[in-house]
């Protein structure tokens, strides 16, 4: 009996997915050793992530920026970024709805990190799953395009609670839609009072300057 141990309940209390967190911590050290600021961009499919990255790279020609593109399949976004001349690596998750830390680690050798100041990670378009997987980023940014509606914090509180900045994209469409910015901001701040909410249009350039200021303040 004693050799078999006692039947009954054994307390465990062990967190799940710690393997991802360990790799994320390694990635974070790796970036820190090279003084690279890493920004994880999370949003729905089509919210304007790639368009914003293209506008950002164009607006900051003196900054050494690299990009990690996450998509279920295809090289489309990486090809768009490559046209700017910025170093880019495409990760195809092969069905997974989020990036994880091991995927980032495998992608790192493809980027000239010693020569970069900043890396943007475009996560897979999804408001739910990416939040649960730390990548080793320095900052999390959520994009919400105004056609998606101002009630999204109610439905996806996890992402708005987890980020350092919220950007309302496609602001040029504001006259045509009933997006209530005050209501949206109130909900975001209800969850996360520290996250600024910025509005911009990557198409017209309106509001882009506030985003660039936010970025510059986080670089050396």
């Amino acid at each position: 009996m004693s050799e078999q141990g006692t039947p009954g309940r054994i307390p465990v209390v062990e967190k799940l997915l710690t393997a991802n967190e360990q790799v994320a911590a390694d990635n974070r050290d790796y970036f820190a050793a090279r003084h690279v600021t890493v920004i994880n961009i999370m949003a729905s499919p089509g919210a304007g992530k790639t368009t914003l990255l293209l506008a950002t790279i164009e607006a900051l020609p003196e900054r050494r920026i690299g990009v990690i593109e996450g998509d279920v399949a295809s090289q489309i976004d990486a090809e768009k970024i490559a046209e700017t001349g910025a170093p880019v690596v495409q990760i195809n998750t092969g069905g997974a709805c989020h990036l994880d830390a091991p995927m980032i680690r495998r992608a790192l050798p493809a980027l000239p990190l010693d020569d970069l100041e900043m890396v943007f990670v475009e996560n897979v378009g999804n408001l739910i799953c990416p939040v649960s997987f730390d990548l080793g980023q320095s900052y999390n940014v959520a994009l919400l395009s105004i056609p998606e509606g101002d009630d999204k914090p109610y439905k996806y509180p996890g992402i708005f609670e987890a980020v350092d900045l919220v950007i309302v994209t496609k602001w040029d469409l504001h006259p045509y839609l009933d997006f209530d910015l005050d209501r949206f901001t109130e909900l975001v701040h209800g969850l996360n009072p520290d996250a600024p909410v910025l509005c911009l249009s990557a198409k017209t350039g309106e509001g882009l300057r506030d985003w660039l200021h936010w970025l510059e303040a986080r670089l050396g």
């Binding site: 141990g5 039947p7 309940r9 054994i10 465990v12 209390v13 062990e14 997915l17 996890g158």
Partner: peptide, 10 residues
């Protein structure tokens, strides 16, 4: 935000 194995019964 919890996500863990609380206990097992054996």
């Amino acid at each position: 935000k919890e996500f863990y194995v609380e206990s097992i019964e054996v």
